[in-house]
């Protein structure tokens, strides 16, 4: 079961509960197909660097999950089908990425800017 990370951008026109409903729909889709959600992160409304579909802001959501390989295709078809989602990016995490996301979640970076720390000891 590979570990993946997907970033979704939802259109800003959605109301709060429409956003929640969309997110729970995808979480349910994941758990139904044997994927296990490790961590979810809501960045909320953010300004985009360039207009996507004529909109300048987007609702960002990050999900880290473990899933069998063939599920990713199904998931992305669902993303494409759902018109609330403007853009998505699914990335598989290698061991360095895994170590990084664990450290980020455990707050090891919070005290200092995350890229400047010395990871020599680990």
């Amino acid at each position: 079961m590979q570990q993946y990370e997907t970033v979704i951008i939802l259109t800003p026109l959605l109301s709060e509960e429409a956003v929640k409903e969309a997110l729970t729909k995808f979480n349910k889709l994941m758990t139904d197909n044997g994927a296990e959600i490790v961590h979810e992160d809501n960045w909320g409304l953010k300004k985009l660097a360039y207009p996507i579909q004529k909109k300048t802001t987007g609702y960002y959501h990050l999900t880290t999950f473990k899933a069998p390989g063939e599920f990713i295709n199904k998931l992305e078809v669902e993303y494409r089908r759902d018109e609330r989602i403007m853009r998505f990016l699914t990335v598989s995490l290698d061991k360095h990425a895994l170590a990084f996301s664990e450290k980020k979640r455990s707050g090891a970076f919070n005290k200092k800017q995350e890229t400047k720390i010395e990871e020599v000891a680990k």
């Binding site: 360095h96 990084f100 890229t115 990871e119």
Partner: peptide, 9 residues
């Protein structure tokens, strides 16, 4: 600095 992973986010 021993950085192993560059975060695209």
């Amino acid at each position: 600095n021993g950085i192993k992973y560059i975060d695209y986010k």
